[in-house]
Write a protein that binds this DNA or RNA. Structure first.
Length: 822
RNA sequence: GCGAGAGUGGCGAAAUUGGCAAACGCACCAGACUUAGGAUCUGGCGGUGCACAACCUUGGGGGUUCGAGUCCCCCCUCUCGCACCA
């Protein structure tokens, strides 16, 4: 055995073996207890970064640990391969996205393999592969049949220069993030997924996700944004038209003094026709729409509006209510029309004060006497209803339901629920994505591509890659015969948002080679759900919500049998350097490959686990890496210098051990317990490693460890290797082999501890006087309470301290302390 | 503004969930070995005191308790998410 810890030779040796032996392959049908652990798959940007290292190390430790615990573990890896950066790189470097992407995948796969990650590489998939996206296209046809996918017109952010729609995040102060040209609103047709059909279930089932961080659950709840209240129709005066409003405060409806419409409200254009106000209203609409484009960053814009010249009738009291157009009303939420109650809503209050509109108090908070004229801000709390017709005198919260009931009896309103969640717009005008499989026919309208013609291949991606123009510019692709009538027609030129692919890849992993459908149902049934999912919190809403939606939809379409995709979610913290997120512009990037080259994968893994618990941010400290490296070198020497103990196969006889050996024996079993607990309870690998370090310290320096009883030493060293194996697999496997073990460590069961062996024989009992530490007692483990009390009172220091005073009370906590209260 | 989380030595962090605050590591200091040390080993290392003793110390202030980093109330600071959501 080499004297020095030669990580390079060791890691190469074991990676080669793993490549040949594929110890981590699992079948589609597990025979024993299954465990599915998954890390969020990477976008193939070119090189892995420290965030990947941390994410995949955490997942790998869990996978390896669970295998040692006897589970059959599904642990796959793949590539989220479609997306914008590949297309940009293609433009910049004159290389086709398919080439760029596959080159990146090849490089990153090599990097991941150099980390010693225990994936079932047979299951590797890339979402840009037609063998993957064809099933997405097939699923889309199902969704179309079910009304879960539909096409509609909507306003989008359009960059004329780039000829494409931009996501909201890509609009920087009203301009395109790439070319800095102004972004214009544009009415465009696009495809949507009907995620709102699942809004209620997506919300409700959050309560079942006890293995998710509260933070993520809260973000999703917030995003879905359920509100219950009253939808109520206000008749427009001298008109057949009605305006329906939504309110969560029906108890304030007698305080309505005007009505506010969003500038996009369909009624607004015609409402003021023929009135002197018409011109002003149209101008206001124009001006506000433009201002809204610009205002995405600013908050709290001034409340502005304009009177339409028309009135509507509050059905509760028959009052005439002036109708305003207002800049703060959202068309996207509720009905785009708001009943304004300035006394009890801050926005309405500001608007009323600005335009000198009446304020009427209808909820009087307990112990106050609100006067409309002197109010400085809206009063939004509960109270007793006043000026509220037959509801006057009621408690406001209790009155809400009665007021809704009244509307339902009279037929002008109803109980209503609204959500902030909107349907998911999946159309992208980009090239590098999965084509949406429909045809537009002048005669037949939208015609699905027949299933047997799938996949609709992304053109230009064959063995000799061709053009990567956006599809709407590729005439060869667009021209097609209508599948229904055979006449010339046009293919859909939009591609899917890449979040569509990542919404079901974890399902595909259960049978990645399956070629007759999206998933092999039996394989999916055996492996789903994912038991442990690991990734960055930045996906808390989009990816995780979409994946939950897909899971429920695929369940309803009969593909899978689970309600939720991810039973447990671990959101790992960011990797920082000097307190900042690593970024090229800050120049504080640590390159994983360089580090692995320099220290070895095991050291890098060990440090990333040891420096912080997984959910917390990790500050990358180069000196800390040295520490991790030093520890492994020490363990290496410890074993290299004490190989002799492995020759001894005699059992341990605890009763005959010298005190030092006894101590090592006990510490070994305590450490097994501690490390197991650290991993089981919350994956706190940092304390697990600290535990092993303590054990190594107890065993002693490599040179003097040989003084320990050989059988005990053997057991301790074996334990160290078994406990460290999930974290530093090459290292442990090498030392396991070098110390004469025939079977691979990976196939060895996680060690069991003996409670008897772990039991301390002597305890340190703390003696307190009035809760302050005054003395310590060394006593046999089985000392009873009365003896403890006696010993405490006999202690010299305690006698000094008491100075003859009488104890009022003495509290004894078993195995811990005695507290003497004076 | 709403929601979630966090605040402990010079630094990263522990604390069996109400029982010795600072485990483990980094940095630092001293010593040993050495031609040498950025290797290794031994010891020290929250603060005020001379090294004893004692006192102080988990963002701040109150409280519950024999006993509080941990539980309760008020406040401060920071991070993240949402944000004119009627």
């Amino acid at each position: 055995m080499n004297e020095r810890y030669d990580f390079k030779a060791i890691e190469q040796k074991w990676q080669k073996r793993w490549q040949e032996e594929e110890p981590d392959r699992v079948p589609d049908a597990p025979t024993g207890k299954k465990y599915y652990v998954l890390e969020m798959f990477p976008y193939p940007s070119g090189r892995i970064h420290m965030g990947h290292v941390r994410n995949y190390t955490i997942g790998d430790v869990i996978a390896r640990y669970k295998r040692m615990r006897g589970y059959e573990v599904l642990h796959p890896m793949g590539w989220d391969a479609f997306g914008l950066p590949a297309e940009n790189a293609a433009m910049q470097h004159g290389v086709h996205p398919v080439v760029w992407t596959h080159d990146n995948i090849d490089h990153m796969r090599t990097q991941l393999k150099a980390m010693g990650l225990s994936y079932d590489w047979q299951r590797e998939l890339a979402t840009c592969d037609p063998a993957y996206y064809r099933w997405e296209q097939q699923l889309f046809l199902r969704m179309l049949e079910q009304g879960l996918a539909y096409r509609r017109e909507t306003t989008v952010n359009w960059c004329e220069d780039c000829q494409t729609v931009l996501a909201r995040e890509q609009v920087i102060e009203g301009a395109c993030w790439r070319c800095d040209q102004p972004v214009l609103p544009r009415l465009m047709a696009g495809w949507f997924f009907n995620i709102t059909r699942y809004a209620e279930e997506l919300l409700r089932d959050l309560d079942t996700l006890s293995g998710w961080p509260e933070r993520v659950l809260a973000m999703q709840r917030n995003w879905i944004g359920k509100s219950t209240g009253l939808a109520c129709d206000f008749q427009v005066e001298n008109s057949e038209e009605q305006i329906t409003i939504f309110t969560t405060r029906p108890d304030t409806i007698f305080g309505v003094t005007f009505m506010s419409l969003a500038v996009e409200h369909p009624l607004l254009k015609s409402l003021s026709k023929g009135l002197p106000q018409h011109e002003a209203v149209q101008a206001f609409i124009q001006e506000t729409i433009i201002a809204k484009q610009r205002a995405s960053l600013e908050q709290e814009t001034e409340k502005r509006g304009v009177f339409t010249g028309r009135y509507c009738i509050n059905p509760y009291n028959g009052e005439r209510v002036p109708i305003y157009a207002a800049n703060f009303v959202l068309m996207e939420y509720g009905t785009g029309a708001v009943m304004a109650v300035p006394a009890h809503d801050q926005r309405d209050f500001e608007f009323a004060r600005a335009y000198d509109l009446p304020v009427r108090v209808v909820v009087q908070p307990e112990g106050e006497n609100l006067q409309a004229e002197t109010m400085q801000e809206a009063s939004i709390g509960p109270g007793l209803l006043v000026n509220s017709g037959s509801f006057t005198g009621m408690e406001s919260e209790a009155a809400q339901q009665l007021i809704i009931n009244h509307a339902e009896q009279q037929g002008f309103g109803r109980s209503h629920i609204t959500y902030k969640l909107r349907d998911w717009g999946v159309s992208r005008q980009r090239y590098w994505g999965a084509p949406i499989p429909v045809v537009h026919c002048a005669h037949c309208g939208i015609v699905p591509v027949p299933e047997e013609e799938l996949p609709v291949l992304l053109p230009g991606t064959g063995t000799a890659p061709g053009t990567h123009q956006p599809l709407h510019q590729q005439e060869d692709f667009l021209a097609v015969q209508c599948p229904a009538c055979g006449q010339p027609a046009r293919r859909e030129s939009d591609t899917f948002d890449t979040f569509v692919e990542s919404s079901w890849y974890f399902i595909r992993y259960t049978s990645p080679g399956h070629d007759t459908g999206l998933v092999d149902k039996a394989a999916a049934a055996s492996w789903l759900p994912v038991d442990q999912y690991i990734g960055g919190v930045e996906h808390a809403i989009l990816h995780l919500l979409y994946s939950r939606f897909f899971t429920k939809m695929l369940r309803d379409l009969g593909y899978i049998g689970v309600d939720e995709p991810f039973t447990n979610l671990l959101t790992q913290g960011m990797v920082l350097k000097d307190g900042f997120k690593m970024s090229k512009s800050k120049g504080n990037v640590e390159d994983p490959s360089t580090l692995i080259e320099q220290y070895g994968a095991d050291t890098v893994r060990l440090f990333s686990l040891f420096a912080a618990p997984p959910e917390r941010d990790l500050d990358w400290n180069p000196q800390g890496v040295e520490g991790a490296s030093r520890f492994l070198a020490r363990v290496y020497r410890l074993i290299a210098l004490n190989l002799g103990c492995f020759a001894d196969n005699s059992p341990i006889s605890p009763e005959n051990l010298d005190p030092d050996s006894r101590q090592v024996y006990r510490k070994t079993h305590q450490t097994i317990r501690r490390v197991s607990d650290s991993i089981e309870s919350n994956f706190h690998f940092n304390t697990a490693i600290a535990g092993v370090m303590e054990l190594v310290n107890t065993i002693g320096s490599p040179e003097e460890a040989g003084r320990c009883d050989a059988a005990v030493l053997r057991q301790s060293l074996e334990t160290v290797l078994m406990l460290l194996f999930p974290m530093v697999p090459h290292f442990c496997e090498e030392l396991w082999e070098a110390s004469g073990h025939g079977q691979r460590l990976a196939q060895t069961a996680w060690p069991q501890y003996s409670a008897e062996a772990a039991r301390e024989e002597e305890l340190t009992i703390v003696v307190q006087v009035n809760g302050k530490l005054r003395a310590k007692l060394q006593v046999p483990e089985d000392t009873d309470d009365d003896t403890l009390k006696k010993l405490a009172l006999q202690d010299e220091k305690i006698i000094q301290f008491l100075a003859g005073a009488q104890a009022k009370k003495i509290i004894v906590v078993r195995k811990k302390l005695v507290n003497i209260v004076l």
